[in-house]
């Protein structure tokens, strides 16, 4: 029999690009524009998959491997990230570290692929990505460690199962701090405002977009899809903390979490509509703040 935990990864594979669509639609609404259709991300993927490719003469197999690793790690991460209180398809103690490892693996290859083109612009993006992710990593792991301390769970599935409304009543401030840290990491890792502006048109100011300037055709489709999966995975962590209510019906819980992810997308769109990107020098401070939040959560829980 198909259970929600079997369906969740497939659902994610299917719905992840929709989050981008919702974000863009929200931004269009706030700007008073019609905006692209909700399904635009799917159209883009379809278009790109049917194209040929142009490669730089400077590139090697690393350039071609980067996007594939991005999609593969994202899809593998879907197997261990739980949705809606149900355990994930694969749940085992220590999968938290594996999730961080998968994200790092994708980052390694995306950075390497950017450097493979030999372009100064892509090198610049790669350098920034390396800097920000180095600072985001402690915040991510510390906030997950805080949640683990709260729930006593050593696997993502145990950990998110025990974040319930009762836990919020008991340890609200700590949970809020951990959630805030996760939100900052979510925004930074997915290259959203206030860390990176996905809509910018000047290569000098970009981080993620500039790293994939040279990708085209199916490779670029992989890049976009991989980014969508990452958005879903990290979003699922945020929603796992922020939406603790569970009903008796696991399918309803799953639906609630998916709805939560869409609301999160709307929220991201709202943030992007009313905030500007931070100066690059400020971003490390923001990420440090995330780390401080997580550390405070741990101090609160240590008693």
């Amino acid at each position: 029999m198909i259970e929600p935990r079997h369906a969740a990864p497939l659902l994610a594979l299917a719905l992840a690009p929709l989050m981008t669509g919702i974000i863009n639609r929200t931004k269009a609404f706030f700007a008073g524009r019609q905006g692209p259709p909700l399904l635009q991300a799917y159209f883009d993927l379809w278009k790109l998959l049917r194209k040929g490719a142009v490669y730089s003469r400077a590139t090697t197999w690393v350039f071609r491997a980067g996007p594939m690793v991005g999609v593969a790690t994202g899809a593998a991460a879907l197997l261990i990230v739980p949705l809606g209180g149900e355990p994930a398809l694969l749940a085992f103690p220590g999968d938290i570290l594996l999730l961080a490892g998968l994200l790092a693996l994708a980052r390694f290859f995306i950075i390497a692929a950017a450097l493979d083109t030999g372009s100064a612009f892509e090198g610049m993006g790669a350098s920034r990505e390396a800097q920000f992710s180095a600072l985001a990593e402690p915040a991510l792991l510390l906030s997950l460690a805080a949640l683990a301390r709260l729930t006593g769970g050593l696997s993502l599935s145990d950990l998110f199962r025990d974040i319930t409304p009762a836990a919020w009543v008991e340890n609200g401030p700590a949970l809020a701090l951990a959630a805030a840290a996760l939100v900052i990491v979510f925004l930074a890792e997915n290259a959203r405002i206030p860390v990176d502006d996905p809509n910018t048109h000047l290569e000098l100011t970009m981080i993620h977009e500039v790293m994939v300037l040279d990708h085209g055709g199916p490779d670029f489709a992989y890049v976009l899809y991989g980014a969508a999966l990452k958005l879903w995975v990290l979003g699922a962590l945020v929603i796992g903390v922020l939406v603790p209510w569970r009903g008796p019906n696991p399918w309803a819980n799953l639906a609630a979490v998916v709805a939560g992810l869409f609301v999160l997308s709307v929220a991201v769109g709202v943030v992007e509509s009313c905030m500007a990107r931070l100066r690059l020098l400020r971003v490390p401070q923001l990420l440090t703040v995330a780390g401080v939040f997580a550390a405070l959560a741990i101090i609160l829980l240590r008693r």
Binding site: G172, P173, A174, L296, L300
Partner: peptide, 21 residues
């Protein structure tokens, strides 16, 4: 106790904010 914690966290954060501002 959650409210007390909330107040305490705010106090800590305001101090850090003064140091960083």
């Amino acid at each position: 106790s959650a409210w007390i914690d909330g107040v305490l966290v705010t106090l800590i954060l305001t101090n850090l904010a003064v140091l960083g501002s």
